[in-house]
Write a protein that binds this DNA or RNA. Structure first.
Lengths: 143, 143
DNA sequence: GTTGTTATTGATATTCATTATCAGTATAAT
DNA sequence: ATTATACTGATAATGAATATCAATAACAAC
């Protein structure tokens, strides 16, 4: 299976909403896609600034929201920590085991759970679009 | 099965932490336990104020955190909505189907999913303590 | 009961992520 | 080229959550 071109998805979303293409958006989507996952707005802003000094924090924030809206990023918010954005494209959906002590997280996946969730929604006449499963506890090193 | 006395749990927690008993704490835990679930700090503050005018917002907030800490409340935070606190005592754990349009939520429960989560954690050498499963989508009326 | 220590309260200030504002600029259709 | 309008970047505003602090209250020790 070929990974869909994330950048194309983003540009398509922009166009479909009647928004405009700008070099800032290009820079931001490129930086986001090539960076390691789980970035905060602040962190992406730092990266983008190194490439193109002068891009505003608000611009990065706004566009990160667009990236999330078009499905290329998931939001992870743990307690009062800053929101983090993780790329979804080319990756299967996964849930998180979050350590309450060291704040690390492990990505996990279970098809059976996914299927049960579908059925659970169905049984309640609910159309499921996305979901978030977070298991909090202690990791191998902290338990 | 007899529901454990939530108020005793709270008072025990206070004592165990070397904190002190106050009439404000009593008022707040009483109001919280007798209120319908899913309250925001603001809403509980309004209720408490009606019983004892003069109790400060910060006091309600602080004590709601203690109530959460001792396991009597779960936190629900949907998007940018205000954090809500829902009583856990005397109720089985449940997950949420959250409507993206009307913001309503349906409480659901599935033992099979719970069990799979346990196993998932185990497989990763992770000690699960609590978890949060939220399925976002469209409810019966909004789909 | 008195005293001393210290947690608590309530009012307010602070913090901090996120969103809104807005003038100037850039984009893209005609 | 013209024109309408979305975008940017700087900054202000928002708002929930937390911190601060002086006055007060709880409670253990005596």
């Amino acid at each position: 299976m070929i990974t869909p071109n994330a950048k194309e998805i983003f540009r398509g979303y922009i166009k479909a909403k009647g928004l405009r293409h700008t070099w800032q958006r290009d820079t931001i989507i490129d930086a986001f896609l090539s960076a390691a996952g789980h970035l905060t707005v602040e962190e992406l802003f730092q990266i983008v600034t190194r490439i193109h000094p002068g891009i505003g924090y608000a611009t990065v924030h706004r566009n990160l929201n667009l990236i999330r809206e078009c499905g290329l990023a998931d939001e992870i918010k743990i307690g009062n920590e800053k929101t983090r954005f993780e790329p979804t494209c080319g990756r299967t959906h996964h849930d998180h085991l979050i350590c309450l002590k060291c704040k690390c997280f492990i990505e996990v996946n279970n098809n059976q759970i996914e299927q049960l969730q579908e059925r659970l929604a169905e049984a309640n006449d609910f159309l499921p679009l996305r979901h978030k499963l977070e298991i909090y506890g202690l990791c191998k090193n902290c338990r």
